[in-house]
């Protein structure tokens, strides 16, 4: 009998020792414990590289450990639907990509989350779309590209990352603006599309500024931004060429719905501090990311504007979920 009770006590002790981390509810000073930062895309991708670069500075700014957690799948939807079901205490935050979190709920019957559920906290970077071809491509300018596409509808193939991504939408917008017909071919990621261009399997790529710095074998025909990009200063913007095309992928962080504003502000300040760190900035710009500094309200406003725009675009294409 005695033996058994001894064992039982030991068990209890072990349970108590191992089961630490019992949460403290009252939080007068956020953050009191480590913050989980959900990344919805594969390691090695743009979202991951950004988070890895932020990591050190973010821990300094928050004064707490930041743990990067991957929740990958469904083009990000798995991670975001997990986020909106998490406790709204600010200890679970997630990378938030536009246009993904706007277009997915529009285009899918049940994406597992809605655009409004994500509480926008801070938007830190933008990678504008670029239309790029191989160095030895016959297309020297955007004009030549458009002219050829006009003559041979659907014969010009444009590769990009995934369906309904910024690259896909930018291709559609270009088709509308220039009145041409292209064939968009989605690949599993912006990196996976590059060999298809280099091997001559697609005529052009609608990719991002972040890919240009890495691949000097590509020539940029135009940048979908209101300003030229430092990674390809010689390439004109679409606007300079006469097409009002501004498209790209915004990356920021969001928290679960119902998170108190004070906590959102603390997080936003921390990310802002990271974003204004010159060391961090130079690393990011070197990699082709354009820094933006949108706090909770501005970020929310951006999302609202874009939602209206994308809803209209998808309605025209008959791509809204029925």
């Amino acid at each position: 009998m005695r033996k058994i009770s001894k064992v039982a006590i030991l068990c209890l002790v072990i349970i108590m020792v191992t089961g630490t981390g019992v949460s403290t509810l009252a939080s007068n000073k956020f953050p009191e414990k480590s913050v989980n930062y959900i990344i919805c895309f594969n390691p090695g991708g743009e979202s991951d590289i950004t988070a890895r670069l932020q990591h050190k500075y973010l821990e300094e700014a928050l004064g707490q450990k930041v743990v990067i957690v991957y929740k990958i799948g469904g083009g990000g939807a798995i991670g975001w639907s997990e986020l909106v079901r998490s406790k709204p205490d600010g200890y679970t935050i997630s990378g938030d990509n536009l246009p993904h979190t706007i277009v997915q709920p529009l285009q899918r019957k049940d994406a597992g989350y809605t655009t409004e559920q994500l509480k926008r906290t801070y938007c830190f970077e933008l990678t504008p779309n670029v239309l790029a071809v191989r160095q030895d491509s016959p297309f020297k300018t955007l004009e030549e590209f458009v002219e050829y596409a006009k003559k041979y509808p659907e014969a010009v193939t444009v590769g990009g990352s995934a369906s309904w991504s910024a690259g896909h939408l930018a291709t559609i917008e270009l088709e509308h603006l220039a009145d041409i017909k292209l064939t968009y071919i989605p690949f599993t990621g912006s990196g996976a599309a590059v060999p298809a261009l280099l091997g001559g399997h697609v005529s052009a790529l609608m990719t991002y500024t972040s890919m240009i710095g890495q691949h000097p074998e590509m020539r940029v025909l135009a940048v979908a931004s209101d300003q030229r990009s430092p990674v390809c200063p010689d390439a004109p913007t679409f606007q300079e060429c006469g097409y009002d095309l501004v498209e790209g992928c915004y990356r920021g962080v969001s928290v679960p719905p119902g998170t108190p504003d004070e906590i959102v502000n603390i997080l936003a300040e921390a990310f802002d501090k990271v974003n204004r760190n010159p060391e961090f900035q130079s690393k990011m710009e070197e990699l082709g990311y354009q820094m933006v500094y949108l706090g909770p309200e501005e970020y929310e406003k951006l999302v609202r504007e874009k939602t209206v725009y994308y809803t209209e675009l998808l309605r025209e294409l008959d791509a809204l979920a029925k």
Binding site: G74, G75, I78, D110, G112, T188
Partner: peptide, 24 residues
């Protein structure tokens, strides 16, 4: 099962949003 690579549609999920991630 999950998101189609070309087309980006959700398919064969039996209406369960968690199945969007497909089978790992």
């Amino acid at each position: 099962i999950g998101i189609s690579p070309v087309g980006g549609d959700v398919r064969f999920t039996f209406g369960i949003s968690a199945m969007q991630g497909g089978i790992e």
